[in-house]
Design a protein around this nucleic acid. Structure first.
Lengths: 221, 221, 221, 221
DNA sequence: CATGAATGAGTTTTCATTCAT
DNA sequence: CATGAATGAAAACTCATTCAT
């Protein structure tokens, strides 16, 4: 499992090996439970070298988040062709997303779970990436509405909430798919696409569900 | 904030005070960063007493997860009346869910975030509760389909995926609502309900989105 | 040498034991070369206890400096009776000083050497005590001049320099006496007293040595 | 500040550059807090080269002490002309001493402070030089007594103590002058000369201060 | 010669946990 | 019951020092 003990590698290569090891350990044990000793051992180097290249546990973790967040965003972007219609673009994006999170479960754990549970600094780092994805999805929803030639003025705030819900659902499904034996990226994407596109279609066509009067909200503290 | 230092309380009460303190600290600092010293101090008792009643940090954390998970499930259950139609039941459930998570942010942090980021044991504990909620939603979807008198045979696996997506979206929205100034439980519920019920409605009526052939899945590692 | 391993001592006592050990180690090895491990072992306690009571290596060192500086000043003060003439007071002060530094060589090393070689913070701590001693000596010189009924207006700046030189000479002699076999406190005091009081006497009576014109200062960079 | 990066300098030159850097860093940070990395960087050479030329941190420090101690002794010697009377020789020596320590504060810190606070080995190195100076002063005192044609038999032991006190006072004044804004070498020398020569004069002429009977020594531990 | 790559050994510090009273 | 006293075990981080190129 650990990298083969090879001597005298150029710095850039060693750094990637260290990040590989760190992502695996951080993803498995969590940020705090992960020990630099373990990471160094898995990377096949001594601890001082890790500190020489990555400075501190915090910096190492930040570097992991950045690398994996970028990799995920890139994967989604590369999966989408801008010359296709909106629904197809959403589908391709979801597929790429679920494929990447399935292929790199530790990375997904780091970016989605660990980064968000250990302080604002790390959370902000991951949030930056998430925003890119949310923006991408928001754009697709708006375009989708326009392509359907209906309700071109779906209110912005509403769209933001929908995008948030859609991305949230995707994130949760990714965790679920990783944890559940036998669920493929395609299946996860299909489930969500079905769920989402129909609902979005309805909305863009003016059909919506109306809540009962606020009175019955009372009683929940 | 910490319980007033009173002598000779019945064990059950003292235990609840300790759990209150523990939930607050665990929710704020995270499992590992929380120190037993701090918890004991906030609870207004001596450290050995915490150990006498709760055995260990792990057991204490587990007890927190169990108590808060149950409280959340109970809150959702109490919010729903079985004599109402499915869509209304879903609405009421969501409302109760968002209201509870907003009212107890530390508890929600413990159950949703901390429990899932510090090892399988704790994750399993939280997963048990989650399953109850997923089952509840699954039931609602099935009933909803039946009430609509259409497609009574929506495949089980499909329904499971939909419930999972819906619950996942709700969880994400809860985090988002807690973190975003000015988003009420009602608004969060409305956003999700709109999104979900329309999509579900379509599905139960046989309209669905068809993915392109699997060939283009290739290339995503 | 190390304190006998006794269990369950009151905090105040343990703290003194720790300070005793710390002074010995710091005095012997120097601040940086001293390890908390060694100090704890010599004190007969575990390292965590040292940290529980003294917080950090810096705080521990500061506590040592304060305790030993106070002890030295107190020793000198207690050795002097205000109802005696100035020369006798100076003699008694010197005697007390050399006796104390000889009896507590590690403490003297800490206060005089270590405190001054490891950063401004520690140096300031020791300087505070030194100032008390310098002030005491300055006072004695002034009083001595007055008692001699001559030159009551010895300039302040001059007196300050003299006190500084006298204290400096005493400090150096203390180190020398500690390092040289067979030099007693009495002898050290006598040497310095002889040297100083005669010189001071001359000065207070207007005899002084006149340097040659400044021209020949040139050439020394 | 650091030497300009030039290639292929003769070994002797490179060594001096390294020592320059080392003295600066050791003087500023102290022996233990100084890092070989920092020294190598300031010297403008790679770390392995420092080891190639100077062997180890200990050896490097020793080399610094030796070089700077010699430089100081040389400075004092060069400042003194043997054809002048004793008092003038003492004055010139002091002037050279204070001028040198003021011009090379890091060097003075290394020789006087650092060398004495980090173990016997280094202390002995510095002590060797100090002895030369003490011998020089001892000689001056003896000659001074003879020139005054009185008490040619001032006991040796006494003279040694006096020389020690004088040198100690000079050392302390040097530190004080370096730390105090606006004190020139001339002023420091004048203060000490005045203080010392008068006192010595008295002594060489048989006037001395007599301590009270030893009885009252009792009680100082 | 010169240097980038690499590490063994040690440092300070923290924490969950347990006795003795 | 309640608590002050105490610790074993481990974690993050640093540094003098050495090869291979």
């Amino acid at each position: 499992m650990g990298a083969v003990k090879t001597k005298r590698m150029p710095r850039a290569v060693r750094e990637q090996q260290m990040l590989d090891a760190a992502v695996e350990i951080f993803g498995q044990r969590g940020y705090m439970a992960a020990s630099m000793d373990e990471i160094a051992e898995l990377a096949g180097v001594s601890k001082p070298l890790v500190y020489l290249y990555l400075n501190s546990k915090e910096d190492l973790f930040t570097a992991c988040i950045r690398r994996e967040a970028s990799a995920l965003v890139d994967a989604v972007r590369s999966g989408v062709r801008t010359d296709l219609p909106a629904d197809r673009r959403l589908w391709d994006g979801l597929l790429a997303f679920f494929a990447h999170t399935a292929a790199h479960p530790h990375a997904w754990s780091v970016v989605h779970l660990q980064a968000r549970t250990h302080g604002e600094t790390f959370a902000a780092e991951a949030a930056a990436m998430r925003e890119e994805i949310v923006a991408f999805v928001t754009h697709l929803i708006a375009v989708g509405a326009r392509e359907a030639h209906r309700d071109p003025d779906l209110p912005e705030r509403e769209v933001a909430g929908l995008a948030e819900a859609l991305v949230g659902a995707a994130e949760s499904l990714a965790v679920w798919a990783n944890a559940t034996e036998g669920v493929t990226a395609r299946q996860a994407a299909a489930t969500l696409m079905n769920f989402a596109w129909a609902g979005l279609g309805d909305l863009t066509q003016g059909r919506s569900w109306s809540p009962p009067p606020a009175a019955d909200d009372v009683g929940h503290a």
